[in-house]
């Protein structure tokens, strides 16, 4: 199991470009669809937790999943595995990369990749919304949060805190019960 965790997160570290959210699509594919280590709902919870804990989303997710699947050793193995590919590539090639990445053909290839990543995020997001947020109230809160993000310069961390406070307020008012209808 530790080896499987290592190879999965090493792969994720080697093939994701752009970090955190761009990684969501691949995390959804690898962890939820392929290995079934997590449900869509849990992946969503991790995303939220990663926002309110220090550090990068990708490492947070690796630690969380590793811990869930194989305890503390799993957490350590997954976290090391995800930083290893970028460390090896950048650490050994740092002085050559700037010349290489100045080329125009590469710029165009990256434009294509960015469009693909946007589509992958959209697809993962819709699939997570369908499976992870199923109540009318949850979806209404989602739309409200999206509108706030688009029309105000709110910080992502504050958005998560606001969401959590809203959930607690709804519970205090008796609108959502013991089993929060996710």
């Amino acid at each position: 199991m530790l080896f499987k965790l290592f190879s999965t997160f090493f792969y994720l570290g080697a093939v994701t470009f752009g970090g955190g959210y761009a990684m969501m699509a691949l995390l959804e594919h690898q962890l939820v669809e392929k290995h079934r280590w997590l449900s869509s709902e849990e992946l969503l919870e991790i995303t939220a937790i990663a926002q309110i804990t220090p550090g990068t989303i990708a490492i947070n997710a690796a630690t969380f999943v590793g811990r869930r699947v194989a305890g503390i050793p799993g957490a350590i193995v997954s976290s090391i595995a995800i930083v290893l590919p970028p460390l090896l590539i950048v650490g050994t090639l740092a002085s050559y990369l700037p010349q290489f990445f100045g080329q125009e053909w590469l710029h165009n290839a990256f434009m294509g990749m960015r469009y693909a990543v946007a589509a992958l995020i959209a697809h993962a997001a819709v699939s997570m919304l369908m499976k992870g947020v199923t109540s009318k109230l949850g979806r209404a809160l989602f739309l409200l949060a999206l509108a706030i993000l688009i029309f105000t310069p709110i910080h992502p961390l504050l958005m998560i805190v606001l969401g959590g406070s809203t959930g607690i307020a709804l519970h205090a008012l008796g609108i959502i019960g013991n089993k929060a209808e996710a």
């Binding site: 752009g18 955190g20 959210y21 761009a22 969501m24 709902e41 969503l44 919870e45 995303t47 939220a48 926002q51 309110i52 960015r114 990543v117 946007a118 995020i121 959209a122 993962a124 997001a125 997570m128 919304l129 992870g132 947020v133 949850g138 979806r139 809160l141 989602f142 739309l143 409200l144 949060a145 999206l146 706030i148 993000l149 688009i150 992502p156 958005m159 998560i160 606001l162 969401g163 959590g164 406070s165 809203t166 959930g167 607690i168 709804l170 519970h171 959502i176 013991n178 089993k179 929060a180 209808e181 996710a182």
Partner: peptide, 22 residues
């Protein structure tokens, strides 16, 4: 559970927003 009910909707919005930004 109530706390997570709220932050899941917020996290979902952040993911959509990230796709939109890119």
């Amino acid at each position: 559970e109530a706390f997570f009910f709220g932050i899941k909707s917020a996290a979902m919005a952040l993911i959509f927003y990230a796709g939109w930004l890119i």
